[in-house]
Design a protein around this nucleic acid. Sequence first.
RNA 1: GGAGAGUUGGCAGAGUGGUCGAAUGCGGCGGUCUUGAAAACCGUUGUCUGUCACAGGACCGGGGGUUCGAAUCCCUCACUCUCCGCCA
Length: 423
Amino acid sequence: MLQVNYIRENRDRVVERLAVRNFKALELVDEVVALDERRRQVQTEADALAAEANTAARQIGELMRQGKREEAEAIKARSGGYKEQQKQFAETLAEVERELYDKLVLLPNLPNESVPAGLGAEDNEVVLEHGQRPLLPDTALPHWELTAKYDIIDFELGTKVTGAGFPVYKGKGARLQRALINFFLDRALQAGYNEVQPPILVNEASGFGTGQLPDKEGQMYHVGIDDLYLIPTAEVPVTNLYRDTIVKEADLPIQLTAYTPCFRREAGSYGAHVRGLNRLHQFDKVEVVQLVHPDTSYDVLERMSTYVQSLLQALELPYRVLRLCGGDMGFTSALTYDMEVWSAAQERWLEVSSVSNFETYQSNRLKVRFKGENGKPQLLHTLNGSALALPRILASILENNQTDNGIRIPAVLVPYTGFERID
RNA sequence: GGAGAGUUGGCAGAGUGGUCGAAUGCGGCGGUCUUGAAAACCGUUGUCUGUCACAGGACCGGGGGUUCGAAUCCCUCACUCUCCGCCA
């Protein structure tokens, strides 16, 4: 959520920046400014009334103590009307605040200066490409056929037990999953992240905190009986660990990593491009999250990007890095890099990671602050990245490393899997 | 699931209707003393809103009510703890 004060003081800049997203903000921004003006006006009037009522109440107390009953009763008689007036102010104020909030949450984050303008995926900027695309024989198979051939992932079985998009990993497939999780966590630890195991069901307040609610409600599984949501990403519980807190500046940066299953309803997505592991309702992911001083957040973003790339390099996967354009970037992000891995058998790029700097957009709603040198609490910057999401990594490992006699496991993973080939 | 007790500032913990944004202790910060440190002593120490700056306003788990006035009384919800039950 953008800060109202910032919008008020930088109206033109906000409109101009949001245009990069093709977001026509002018009208909305003006409404926000007007509502904020109204809010402050009502607040001032309400405060003045409260001050008057407080004074009267204090006088009554003082007079009673002095035994001047009659004078006290006289003031009391005049004070009866305050309550009703205050109630009305409170109602007006609540209404204006709600309207303001409702408008405010419609405004996406301001794109960083470096974000290219654009409408969609085709306008993203390729920052770099790394590694050789493997040349596969004509007999090469897409991963959904490889998984069947070697009996390592069973999609039909998952459909029986739960439904489409809930695969069953078996044998070496299951062990490869576990190996990847441990590999990613170990690397994150080496990079300075602290591991946490958060809950994978969260309450409504947490969903609001990171922005999944209210707009993306339909994308999360909801456990109605207890009113809890299954997390779509570890970002939700991990970032919310710090909701409503003020941390010491000396404790920054806060670097966290977590492995969790992730659940996404992704209603309405069907077709060849979502076959196999490409899009699932349940998948595993290791996430990295940082809470940092505002001055450092863009350096941290670059380091996060470099870190994620180091994982892809270790796994010997050809990849490219995209700087997302305004039209393709997430609602809450100021700058996002996507990492895409080349899937040799599908002959297309698969998104495996997304690292973003949210600046104060999340921290403003979450009320995560740090106490700076002047002693005043200040919003910090939040960032996160997938490091990494498993299914598409698994898919590209299977596809890119297929040989006539089985699938070769990348060397760094062998200590984790305990086997060198799937055959 | 049943019964009871609780929820106050970074922490501990007083406060049962007005002088309470809140005693006291610990912790933090600043200072005196000291070669330095510790101890001791003195001072200071919440958040939000609002203003050019003052002033003012709000916050004692959330919401609602009683009252001229609520941390304090009432209702309600959430959570925590203890005991019982169930259970990995």
